[in-house]
Amino acid sequence: MSLKSENILRFWGALDLFFILIMLYRDIESGLIPYYSYIVNSINIIDSYGNNLPIAFFLSAIILQLSIISSAVLLLLNHRWAKILCYSQIPFRLFLVVPSIPFILELGSKVFNNNAYAAVILLLLSEIVKFISLYRKL
Rank of each mutant, 00 (worst) to 15 (best):
F58T: 04
I55S: 01
Y35D: 04
Y38K: 01
Y49Q: 13
Y38H: 04
I62Q: 05
P34W: 05
Y35K: 06
S37I: 03
S37F: 03
Y49T: 12
I62H: 01
Y36I: 11
L53E: 13
I62D: 01
L59K: 02
A61S: 14
N51K: 11
P54F: 00
I43M: 14
I46S: 11
N52C: 10
I39H: 05
I39T: 08
A61E: 06
S42Q: 11
D47A: 15
L59Q: 04
L59G: 02
N44Q: 13
Y35P: 01
N44A: 12
N44V: 09
N41D: 10
D47Q: 14
Y36G: 00
G50L: 11
I39E: 04
I63V: 15
N51I: 06
V40W: 07
N44H: 11
L59V: 09
F57R: 04
I43Q: 12
S48E: 14
Y35G: 02
A61Y: 03
Y36S: 08
N51Y: 12
I39Q: 03
F57T: 02
S60E: 02
D47L: 15
S60Y: 01
L59T: 06
D47S: 14
S37W: 04
S37K: 03
P54L: 05
N41I: 06
I43N: 12
A61G: 05
S42M: 09
Y35M: 09
F58G: 00
I55G: 00
I45R: 13
S48P: 08
F57Y: 02
S48D: 13
S60P: 00
F57Q: 01
N44F: 11
D47N: 15
I62W: 04
